[in-house]
């Protein structure tokens, strides 16, 4: 029993490694790396498509969380552990929660109809344009030459995975200190701006009047016309009025 299981295991192992070799060619990544990559890639792509095709905005936000988690795994695979943590804390923890908060606040958490588009040509054109963007970026990525003349440069960051946070911190607080301080100002401005934007609608000062339609709507159809044409269901009253008009004439 056990030898049979063992041989079965080796065959499976060999099959996976064979497939692996076909996909990656000579530069063979380790099996855990590639399995993690493909699982995370599927999560990212399914999450991205889920954001676009969900009818309910709440479902879109939840698919967005899945996609962001997949991206965080991609960051971890590339030794960017600090960015992976920030990705989950800031994106999943703050931005998506803000999205959900606004969806609930506005009460738009209902499924909407996305079956047909008002502009018929828009959807095929949009997909065509998206495919163009995909093809263009892939072409650019695979045909561009590095300045060193090499076709591509791949390798692990020097110093191993533990050193990465230290390097990032040193870079942020030395070379990139001025942009870092500028982000503090940017965040303050954003918060003040958001408060101002949402407060202004409540307080209407003397100078700012709420929006009014310039002309009130007028029915271009003359009175009684609809009933004469049989367009109104309860036409009795209007018919009486029309008869009176005829009597007067």
């Amino acid at each position: 029993m056990i030898p049979a299981l063992h041989s079965y295991g080796t065959v499976l192992h060999g099959m996976i490694f064979g497939l692996h070799g076909i996909v990656f060619g000579t530069t063979l990544p380790t099996l855990p790396d590639s399995v993690t990559f493909f699982i995370a890639a599927v999560i990212v792509l399914v999450g991205g498509i889920g954001v676009v095709v969900s009818r309910n905005p709440v479902h879109s936000a939840l698919w967005l969380v899945a996609c962001l988690f997949g991206i965080a795994v991609m960051f971890l695979l590339q030794d960017a552990s600090f960015l992976a943590a920030v990705q989950i804390i800031v994106y999943a923890g703050a931005i998506v929660v803000l999205f959900l908060f606004v969806i609930m606040l506005l009460g738009v958490d209902r499924p909407e109809s996305i079956g047909s588009d008002p502009l018929k040509a828009q959807r095929p054109l949009a997909i065509l344009f998206g495919l163009g963007v995909l093809g263009g970026s892939l072409l650019l990525g695979f045909t561009a030459k590095w300045e060193s003349g090499a076709k591509s440069q791949a390798g692990r960051a020097v110093g191993g995975s533990t050193n990465e946070v230290q390097k990032l911190g040193k870079a942020v607080f030395s070379i990139y200190l001025l942009p870092f301080e500028a982000t503090a100002a940017l965040l303050t401005i954003a918060v003040v701006g958001a408060v101002l934007l949402t407060m202004h609608a409540n307080r209407t000062t003397e100078n700012s009047k709420p929006y009014e339609d310039p002309k009130p709507y007028e029915d271009p159809v003359p009175d009684g016309y609809r009933s004469r044409q049989g367009l109104v269901a309860n036409a009795d009253e209007e018919v009486d009025l029309v008869d009176k008009e005829l009597d007067v004439k």
Binding site: V44, L45, G48, I49, V51, V52, C67, I114, D117, Q122, R123, L125, A126, I127, F129, G130, L131, V133, L134, S137, L138, G141
Partner: peptide
Amino acid sequence: ALLFSIGVVGILVR
């Protein structure tokens, strides 16, 4: 590139 294209299509369609 795939994820970016999904985003582009989404912003044009929705």
